[in-house]
Computed example of a mutant assay.
Amino acid sequence: MGHNLKLYVGTVVIFLAIDLTYLGLIMPKFYKAQLGALARLRGDALAPLWWAAFVVYLLIPAGILLFALPRVNPANPFFSALAWGFLYGVTLYGVYDFTNLSTLDKWPVALSFADTAWGGVLCSLVTAAAYRLDRWIG
């Protein structure tokens, strides 16, 4: 397996591990409460369309590798990775959340801010991890 494919697969795994922990274990009640009638539920639990989530979980790490990772400054890689990842995540999640806020009647303001912040944190952590993984794969 080539370097770039290993880096991509590793980044997807890291992204999944962090995001699914956050969404599934730490914040499911918040998201369920904020989404209300908009939420796709099975019984009392959130039940996303997994094929659609799969597309998201492939695209966001690809964006990290294409748009954030190349900007990391090797002279200060940790801070630089966190900063570029955060900017990428806030941009990506912000466009999604605030477009929903502007176009959907019942989209919650609190969810827009919280999810945009989470996107920044998530992508900053994953960009820093991807930088380390890239160096480790060598």
Rank of each mutant, 00 (worst) to 15 (best):
G43R: 13
D44A: 15
L49D: 13
F15K: 01
M27F: 15
L133V: 08
R71C: 06
F98M: 07
T99L: 10
P61R: 07
L46I: 15
L35F: 14
R42D: 14
S80I: 03
V90C: 05
A52Q: 03
W84Q: 08
V95A: 12
C123I: 07
V55A: 15
A62L: 15
R132C: 11
K106L: 12
L59P: 02
Y88I: 13
T127D: 05
R135C: 09
P70F: 00
D19V: 08
A45C: 03
L20E: 04
V121G: 08
A129I: 04
L58S: 13
N76V: 10
D97K: 00
L82C: 06
W118Y: 06
I137C: 02
A75Y: 01
N100V: 05
L111Y: 06
D115W: 01
R132N: 06
G36E: 12
F15L: 01
Y8W: 13
L92C: 12
K29C: 10
W50F: 10
V13M: 01
R42V: 02
M1C: 12
L16H: 07
L122M: 14
V121M: 11
L59C: 14
R71D: 05
W50D: 02
D134A: 14
L7P: 03
G10C: 01
A83K: 00
Y57F: 06
F54S: 04
L111N: 06
G36M: 06
W118H: 13
R71H: 04
L59T: 15
G2E: 03
L125E: 10
G24L: 01
L65K: 05
G85M: 07
Y93T: 09
D97E: 12
Y88E: 12
L5P: 00
R42W: 05
D134F: 03
L38S: 13
V56G: 04
G85C: 11
V72Y: 07
L41T: 10
G120A: 15
A83E: 07
I64P: 00
K106F: 11
I64T: 11
G43V: 09
G43T: 02
G24Q: 02
V121T: 12
I64K: 04
A37N: 03
A129V: 01
P48E: 14
P70E: 15
T99K: 00
A17W: 00
P70R: 08
Y96S: 05
L66S: 13
T21H: 02
R135D: 01
N100Y: 05
G120V: 12
L111W: 03
V12S: 09
T127Q: 11
S124W: 03
A53P: 05
L41P: 06
G85D: 12
V90K: 01
D44Y: 13
